[in-house]
């Protein structure tokens, strides 16, 4: 069931068109990746959901109702530019944000302590934000977004700047929230992580949606793809002149090819053998990075 319905958003900043009729829906129970190049309109869209940006046109609804301040109480937000009070103790800070979202003092404090423990900050409740590392500040920021158990969680670049352990911890929480029936939207430029964590992906560019669907749908759509590895030709020069074949990625000798529908894979294999010993030759699905690049092109 779609819980967040974003419809026809338009917003100009002077001559710059930030949002150009942007529409998509976010369902509960799934993790939605919200992708796009820098300046595509991701942050403007997220701010618009929270009423932080005035729209020229468009409508944002939750379960069919316009988003108002009361409904935003049930949202959790982690903005791209992290923001916490530098000299406030972290548990006091999480409690404060919990209370701003309607929790009682006791609930906000106990849930805040639970989240800090879950995020690996047990014993540091009385530390001030500016005494923490960047990664731990990011964990506190996530705790402030989660403390009131929001129905809709909107996270702008939640994984940037984290070490692998931090990415695993926060990634697990993002997926867990969705599995518990919440709607989770997050943006990231780390496309491999998005592919692993997300169920649905929305890609925008110039304020418009250019691709939307489940990760499986997007990966299996489009033209056939081959992964070929030929000893002695790490740059895939052998494939450059094949008609109907485009080299999409070269990664450590692994050459990823996009084939036009009429191309015979046997002919491709023959060309590869002619260049050297073939150690890998397989059909594959599109990676999200390929979906992203192809959607933008």
């Amino acid at each position: 069931m779609p819980v967040l319905d974003i419809s026809g958003l338009r917003r100009r900043f002077g001559d710059l068109v930030a949002l150009d009729g942007l529409s998509f829906t976010v369902a509960s129970g799934v993790v939605t990746g919200f992708l796009g190049p820098n300046g595509a309109g991701k942050t403007t869209t997220m701010r618009a959901i929270f009423g932080l940006v005035d729209l020229d046109e468009g409508d944002i609804r939750v379960d069919g109702h316009p988003v108002d301040a009361a409904r935003r109480q049930r949202f959790g937000y982690m903005p791209e530019e992290r923001g916490l009070y530098p000299t406030m103790k972290i548990l006091d800070q999480v409690e404060y944000f919990g209370r701003l979202h309607g929790l009682s003092r006791a609930d906000a404090r106990s849930k805040g302590a639970e989240w800090l423990t879950r995020l690996g900050l047990e014993g540091r409740e009385d530390a001030k934000v500016d005494e923490l590392s960047h990664g731990n500040q990011q964990r506190v920021q996530l705790a402030t977004a989660l403390v009131h158990d929001p129905d809709i969680l909107i996270l702008d670049e939640p994984l940037s700047g984290l070490d692998p352990t931090g990415i695993d911890d926060i990634g697990a929480i993002i997926v867990e929230r969705a599995r518990e029936g919440r709607a989770v939207v997050f943006s990231s430029h780390q496309l491999d992580l998005v592919e692993n964590l997300c169920d649905v992906v929305t890609i925008i560019d110039h304020g418009r949606v250019v691709a939307h669907g489940t990760v499986d749908e997007l990966a299996s759509a489009g033209q056939p793809r081959l992964t070929v590895r030929v000893e002695g030709d790490r740059e895939g020069r052998w494939a450059a002149s094949l008609p109907g074949v485009t080299v999409s990625e070269i990664n450590g000798g692994e050459v990823r090819l996009v084939l036009e529908d009429h191309v015979d894979t046997d002919l491709v294999l023959s060309a590869a053998r002619a260049a050297g010993r073939v150690t890998e030759f397989s059909l594959h699905r599109r990676r999200l990075s390929e979906v992203f690049r192809e959607s933008l092109s």
Binding site: R47, F50, L52, A69, R72, Q73, F75, Y77, M78, P79, E81, R82, G83, L84, Y85, P86, F97, L100, H101, Q141, T144, A145
Partner: peptide, 10 residues
């Protein structure tokens, strides 16, 4: 400190 964006979301 950018905290205002989080505050104004609620």
């Amino acid at each position: 400190s950018r905290v205002v964006e989080v505050l104004l979301s609620g």
